[in-house]
């Protein structure tokens, strides 16, 4: 499959990339790992006239400690994240979810920034950044802004990023002590995309769930927080019964999607089951 013609740019700095994006605007696309964009270009579902490759913009690839949390550059690959000792110690749930994305080759190329910007309804890391209450930083040649994850994702393949903006960083705030996390997904057998994926974080102190955060992906048109389920468990003891009650609410407010892989009813069922499994595992790792 041959994509339509485009002009190619390989900037080596962020500001150079932003200037190019401003110049070519709506007819330009940035390419990160290319593992969502290039397949779309090959099918001619995307036909940018200008392709701005961020592959050489080294300043966007890093994982560093930041104010008790972590700052991850948008161009950091899945492999760099899953193999990072910093991620494994501070946010094991992120390492766990990342290692379940696609396959070795895709993880060698795909980036966290590309996954966020693409906003595929079945992407894995969207659920995790929602549960971690990450901030997503972006910038154009003129201005920078920062946005909480729950406001960043708007709809299927739609975020608040503007045509002239580049996503630069994903900032993970420090987690409270005694927090356990887990990511559980029912994966598509061929692509490993999440039919349903649940990221859960539970903070247990004094035998009670003090704080619960749940991100759901795959189920609806876009990843979202399961606030009803969070509230149902907060202030409660982490008993099997309380967890099950909370998990039953994980699908509240989700407009379940139907496609050839799974019906809406099946996704609703999977959401409850995987929310329970993710919560149980998070609880066992907490405290």
């Amino acid at each position: 499959m041959i994509p339509s013609s485009f002009e190619y740019f390989a900037p080596t700095t962020l500001s150079e990339a932003q200037t190019l994006l401003r110049r070519y605007g709506g007819d330009a696309k940035v390419v990160a790992g290319g593992h969502s964009l290039i397949p779309l270009m090959k099918m001619r579902l995307s036909e940018p006239g200008y392709l701005i490759d961020l592959g050489g913009v080294d300043e966007l690839s890093y994982i560093r400690e930041d104010d008790g949390g972590l700052a991850i550059g948008a161009m950091t690959t899945y492999y760099d994240i899953e193999s990072s000792p910093l991620v494994k110690t501070k946010y094991p749930v992120l390492a766990e979810a990342t290692a379940l994305v696609a396959d070795i080759q895709v993880r060698n190329k795909g980036t966290i920034g590309g996954s966020m910007a693409h906003a595929d309804p079945s992407a894995d890391l969207t659920a995790v950044v929602l549960a971690l209450e990450a901030e997503l930083r972006s910038g154009s040649s003129r201005a920078q802004r920062s946005m909480p994850a729950h406001r960043f994702f708007v709809d299927t393949f739609t975020t608040t990023l503007r045509d002239n903006e580049i996503l630069t960083e994903i900032r993970l705030p420090a987690l409270p002590a005694k927090t356990g996390g887990a990511y559980r997904k029912f994966a598509n057998k061929a692509s490993h995309f999440a039919e349903v994926g649940i990221a859960a974080l539970v903070t247990i102190d004094g035998g009670v769930c003090q704080r619960v955060r749940i991100g759901v992906t795959g189920a609806g048109p876009i990843a979202s927080r399961a606030r009803g389920a969070e509230r149902a468990l907060e202030g409660k003891e982490p008993t099997q019964r309380n967890i099950a009650t909370a998990a039953n609410r994980a699908g509240r407010g989700i407009e379940f999607q139907s496609n050839i892989h799974a019906s809406a009813e099946y996704r609703a069922h999977l959401t409850t089951v995987y929310a329970r499994r993710a919560l149980e595992e998070a609880v066992s790792r907490a405290g």
Binding site: G34, H35, I38, P39, L51, I104, Q105, V106, N108, K109
Partner: peptide, 8 residues
Amino acid sequence: AVKCCTMF
């Protein structure tokens, strides 16, 4: 290791 059908 990369899938080079998905790169230019």
